[in-house]
Design a protein around this nucleic acid. Structure first.
Length: 488
RNA sequence: GCCGCGUUCGUCUAGGGGUCUAGGACGCUGCCCUUUCACGGCGGUAACACGGGUUCAAAUCCCGUACGCGGUACCA
């Protein structure tokens, strides 16, 4: 088994592209096959400089490795279509010789004119096909001599696929089962553009054949193009690979997850953005794996290895799937909390160090440990500013509601009690507080709450005693003093 | 318009003729835990698009309708 992911470097890796790559990768892993990456850079006009690099980086970040492709090569390389032009030309010539393709010299103005001529309410999109090619300037209508002189003269031309009408083109899709099209509905697709480069359709089938790809797993947007590809394989006497078209990822409002639509819903579309926002790669991958596939049981949390062992194309769904940012968030929380504080500390240290003074890696790691089950993103630790600096203000609503006239005094009493402590640990801190409660004959909340407010400025947060341990005696006493004066 | 693909809780899904008074997860929500907030635990909410068949029996098979999505480029 040989599969491939064949992105076009027209932009950063899209979330849907990552899922396609993932499914290919999983299938290859499952069957001990080979996973190829091929860059389909045949459109010079849409080429984006750093896109290829981003695609490779993003896959690597996601933990998706490949066996043949850019950077590492392989025996079917090179893996960029822009440097394989000769081969496409060769196949195009072969198709022309076989009578399966032809030269066309029509200018874009002439094609526009054709459309204007044919357009009607019942036919809003006239095609260049069996019904219209006789009216155009191509090697089917022009004399042989005329064609030769035009070619010799270097007239701009394209190569088109000659699609015969009246045929049924069908294939079995691994996800959708039997699919069939009438050839009448297929246009004479351009195979070689006037710039000499191939279109997707030609380059794709030539490379899939030459690279011995056994399974083509791609998005559903390619389903309608598949008959063209089948015609091409047949014309060349090649066996078409097994096809599998994945359901599209939809935006929560329904449409396809275009950049604009996604932005409107606050959904990042490029993997780069997820990296930047601090998502855990395992979370994104796990979430995406389940967007259109399921293992057939109730398991949702899976490592790449587990997914690979469970994966199969017949468990891929057929209906479009809506992207759910909340579910992704849940996966992210899960993976954040399953990591060690040390690992998370490493990943956010630079950010924390920028924001606060004198935070050691060890301290950060202990802070994260204290906050672990309330983090959605590792970087959320930065929001708990009170762990890294004294509070600058005290939550007004909480003060109004729960700060009593005796609060300041209680704070001072507690500060005095714990200042004497030789053992700065949770148990003595707790028993001193309880003793104070008995001595003063008050409810425990009457002292706990002001202490919390003094330490954090907020009405909620992690366990009080554990937090005092983290902050340290000096800092705790200072904060109690400060609050007793500032709020009191 | 035409061609193609699809349609189970709000979302991702299980289910493939009787075991479905339709299961799981996210979300939302109630209670418990915690004299904080989260986490966690235990509950609740909520779906077979519609209409015809076939069958003793249909969420499951067939047909139609509606709706959604994709394609209809010298883009991929």
């Amino acid at each position: 088994m040989r599969v491939r992911f064949a992105p076009s470097p027209t932009g950063y890796l899209h979330i849907g592209g990552l899922r396609t790559a993932l499914y290919n990768f999983l299938l290859a892993r499952k069957h001990g096959g080979v996973f190829v990456i091929r860059i389909e850079d045949t459109d010079q006009t849409r080429f984006v400089e750093d896109a290829e690099q981003d695609i490779l980086d993003s896959l690597s970040w996601a933990g998706i490795t490949y066996d043949e492709g850019p950077l590492i090569g392989g025996k079917f390389g090179p893996y960029q279509q822009s440097v394989r032009s000769e081969r496409y030309q060769e196949v195009a010539s072969q198709l022309i010789k076989l009578g399966k393709a032809y030269f066309a010299f029509d200018t874009s103005e002439e094609i526009d004119a054709l459309k204007q001529r044919k357009i009607s309410s019942s036919n809003p999109n006239p095609r260049y096909d069996f019904a219209t090619r006789a009216e155009m300037q191509n090697s089917l209508t022009l004399s042989e001599a005329d064609v030769s002189t035009r070619l010799a003269r270097g007239d701009a031309h394209v190569v088109r696929l000659l699609v015969q009408p009246g045929a049924e083109i069908s294939f079995v899709d691994a996800v959708r089962g039997h699919v069939s099209f009438e050839s009448d509905a297929v246009d004479d697709q351009i195979l070689i553009k006037s710039d000499g480069l191939p279109t997707y359709h030609l380059a794709n089938i030539v490379d899939d054949h030459d690279m011995q790809i056994s399974h083509v797993i791609r998005g559903e947007e390619w389903l309608s193009s598949t008959p063209k590809h089948i015609i091409l394989y047949d014309a060349l006497g090649w066996t078409a690979p097994q096809m599998a078209h994945l359901p599209l990822i939809l935006s929560p409002t329904g449409g396809k997850l275009s950049k604009r639509n996604a932005d409107k819903n606050g959904i990042p579309v490029s993997v780069f953005e997820y990296r930047k926002k601090g998502y855990e790669p395992e979370a994104l991958v796990n979430f995406l794996a389940l967007l259109g596939w399921n293992p057939g049981n109730d398991q949702e949390i899976m490592s790449l290895d587990e997914m690979a062992s469970l994966f199969s194309l017949d468990r891929v769904g057929q209906a479009g799937v809506q992207f759910d940012l909340q579910k992704l968030a849940w996966f992210n929380e899960h993976y954040v909390r399953s990591k060690t504080p040390e690992v998370l500390a490493e990943s956010v240290y630079v950010k924390i160090d920028e924001l606060f003074d004198d935070v050691s890696m060890d301290y950060l790691s202990r802070a994260i440990s204290l906050m672990l089950d309330r983090l959605s993103f590792a970087t959320d630790i930065a929001n708990a500013t009170y762990l890294f600096a004294d509070p600058k203000a005290y939550d007004e609503k909480s003060v109004q509601k729960r700060w009593k006239t005796n609060s300041s005094q209680l704070l001072i009493s507690y500060a005095n009690d714990i200042e004497a402590l030789s053992d700065w640990a949770t148990d003595p801190l707790e028993s001193r507080l309880k003793e104070l409660v008995e001595r003063e004959n008050i409810g425990i909340g009457e002292i706990m709450f002001p202490v919390r407010l003094a330490l954090t400025g907020l009405p909620s947060g992690p366990d009080l005693y554990q937090m005092m341990i983290l902050l340290g005696k000096e800092s705790v006493l200072r904060r109690l003093q400060t609050a007793s004066h500032a709020v009191g």
